[in-house]
Design a protein around this nucleic acid. Structure first.
Lengths: 310, 310
DNA sequence: TCCATGCGTTGCATTATTGCATAAATCAAA
DNA sequence: TTTGATTTATGCAATAATGCAACGCATGGA
């Protein structure tokens, strides 16, 4: 009797989710031809067609949809097993994958990561910087630094600090414009929908200033502001160290977010995870005033470590 | 990031259960060296030693024991998935694995299996004849014919018939012995423990006849009785067709067992499973008098199809 | 219509995995 | 202690799986 290769389910799941061989080959980190051939072989072994080959890609047949739930349960259980193995690891070595927002890494923490890597060369630090959130349950990352009001209950960790934003513009822009006196003549660099006056503008100090530029990426917004395109609402930790930019309002905008450092429950006992989290808590303490926007002469010193990137 | 091969878990489970590489290689149907190498590689990938290499075999480390439960959950889910695939199969083709007690196959049903195979050449009938019970949940078999008072609830099927035993001896033996008049001078061919008068003897018509021969296999008991070694308590369907043997007591011993034909809930809609079960119900109907011990002239006709095997 | 783009499959060379035969190690019994 | 049986690990040859590059096919836009 020909037995099933459990690993085929991993291929099946990737194709089912991505809807294409190529897409699946990406997440599986193998060649597309391998995916194609293994799906074919899997269907042959089962004696059932799992996917319809549409011009647009692979779509599940009814039989293929039937097994999706089981396959996902298996995936969850494998992840759990994986965490249980890593969870009892007392070695200060091995890989450690950390996910965090791009901006925090590039504008604040990169030197700290470098220091950590230098101090613990046995730990292979991998950064997962992406707009998408990596799933700690699936062990797509071991530690997450997130900006979120309240983290999910299955993650454990510490609240680091609140984070502040303020309104910035370039020195050059402010020579030609006065948003306080003539708000309608200034321009917002915004994000999200193509509205002139979205909610966040109405809530701001300049509700009458229209949005004229769109950029979903904070780094791009910062560069746009720096080039004198208009006003931008930016996190203080990013904008304060940039000498070309200055705050328009002296006070900061609170409740912009809370920074958390988190790991999965199953990983909290893992030595290198604890070590890294403790290290980062200390590192964040150094940056606290920058993050909360309490600009002071101390910040000037920080600047030395924080060259404006990009 | 190096991802886990889910199929390694199959190897891990087999070794964990069998406690040895060699034993695992048997159930996995691969060479022992493959198992050895894959376990090594798996441990290396995880960075954890799962087994201690003891002289007596492989035993789980604490870390190895940690993942056992997850691995078993995965196995269950794979089996469920497997059944769900096969459960919607409407083709009258493919493999069909049937498990049943050896005696029923060799002494009664073999011609029926042959007829079925001839009638449906597309269905690849596999017989799993063994003393151990095959697990239908794990799809070690698709259909089971079992002698059991009440089948487990997750299996569905039909009660076929009660089965009867009687006491038999060879014609030659009865010329020299008279168990009814001199029970102590006769000898039982028994099974199980090495007792002279076990419970089943006390419950029989010849409680004073001692057990002098031991054979756990029914076929061996039958052959022993046929050779004139003594009395044997045998299923009527096996002994009645053998002309050398004759019943000592005219009445049969009821409550000896109930025959069931069973399949897993998930497989009851599968075309070839239904077909086979219906076929076997009809086949059993032909054998009913033989099974229940209602010996008659009809049995003589049956005999033509039932050459004494072994 | 033509071209550019994105996707899946196929041939071929390379790499990895497997089975077989054998060696080494351990334990039980003589 | 020796012998025999059982089990795991390793060298080598055969087999199977994989990656790469090229191709065919469909779609959408100029």
């Amino acid at each position: 009797m020909q037995r099933m290769d459990w690993d085929d389910l991993r291929f099946y799941l990737a194709v089912a989710r991505k809807g294409s061989i190529r897409g699946a080959s990406g997440v599986l980190a193998v060649n597309a031809s391998t995916v194609s051939r293994r799906i074919d072989a899997f269907e042959k072994k089962l004696g059932v067609r799992l996917f319809d080959r549409m011009p647009t890609g692979y779509v599940l047949t009814p039989a293929g949809a039937d097994i999706l739930e089981s396959a996902e349960n298996i995936e969850d259980e494998v992840a759990k097993l994986d965490r249980s193995v890593i969870g009892r690891d007392t070695q200060l070595s091995g890989s450690l994958r950390v996910t965090l927002p791009t901006a925090l890494a590039t504008h604040l923490l990169m030197p700290d990561f470098a220091t950590f890597s230098r101090g613990y060369p046995g730990i292979e630090l991998e950064l997962a910087l992406s707009s998408e959130e990596f799933n700690l349950s699936k062990r797509e990352a071991d530690v997450a630094i997130r900006i979120t009001p309240n983290p999910p209950e299955y993650l454990v960790g510490r609240h680091i600090t609140k984070i502040s934003k303020a309104v910035y513009a370039s020195t050059g822009y402010l020579l030609k414009h006065d948003p306080k006196k003539y708000p309608q003549l200034s321009r917002w660099i915004g994000w999200g929908d193509q509205e002139r006056h979205p909610q966040w503008v109405k809530d701001s100090n300049f509700p009458k200033t229209p949005v004229h530029h769109q950029a979903d990426d904070l780094l791009v917004q910062l560069e746009a502001a720096r080039s004198g395109m208009g006003l931008a609402m930016l996190p203080c930790f990013m904008a304060d160290p940039v000498t070309d930019l200055q705050r328009i309002t002296s006070h900061t905008l609170a409740n912009c977010g809370d920074v958390w450092i988190l790991t999965h429950k199953d990983l909290r006992a893992t030595a290198r995870v604890r070590l890294f989290m403790d290290f980062m808590v200390k590192a964040f303490a150094k940056h606290k005033k920058l993050l909360t926007g309490q600009y002071s002469t101390e910040i000037e010193q920080e600047n030395l470590d924080q060259p404006a990137l990009a």
